[in-house]
């Protein structure tokens, strides 16, 4: 891990101002920000660990917990809401047996709700690993989960 992070930090000339891009790259590489990684970023970038921790906890895009292989973000915007997102949230939570914002134990799925994905015409929208799925229904959600390898058991 040490070499990976050293390489990322050096890509940005060890410039303190690039803390956020460095953390973004680290997260892309490791899927989340483990504690050792933050310690190493602090060491190589010469930024105090308290500051690295502050930035890493400030942005929602950073996760200090391991995330699933499939990251699902379900839109909760007004347009999606009136088209029945609450039912889909319920359905996913029951199928995956996790709550909003959690990750399944086998590290396969992370499910979270977000406030608007900016694709209201397609509502309800769900993004799985940066791929948009529009006009979601419970049936379509089941189909999608099946494709991702999860059979509904509820």
């Amino acid at each position: 891990m040490e070499n990976t992070i050293k390489a990322i930090v050096e890509k940005y000339d060890s410039n303190k101002g690039f803390l956020v891009p460095v953390l973004q790259d680290v997260q892309k590489e490791l899927n989340y920000l483990p504690r050792e990684a933050l310690d190493l970023v602090s060491k190589f970038l010469k930024v105090s660990i308290s500051q690295v921790f502050e930035v890493a906890t400030f942005y929602k895009a950073f996760s200090l917990e391991p995330r699933g292989k499939y990251q699902m973000a379900l839109c909760q915007g007004t347009a999606c809401h009136v088209r029945g997102v609450p039912l889909i949230v319920d359905h996913i939570e029951r199928t995956l047996e996790i709550k909003d914002g959690e990750t399944t134990e086998d590290l396969m799925y992370t499910f979270e709700t977000v406030n608007c994905l900016g694709a209201c015409a397609l509502g309800p929208v769900m993004v799985v690993n940066e791929e948009y799925h529009g006009k979601m229904t419970i049936a379509k959600t089941d189909k999608l989960l099946k494709k991702l390898g999860k059979e509904g058991n509820a």
Partner: peptide
């Protein structure tokens, strides 16, 4: 000049 504590979350 130590920087031991900081904010957490937002």
């Amino acid at each position: 000049g130590v920087n031991a504590i900081g904010y957490k979350s937002r």
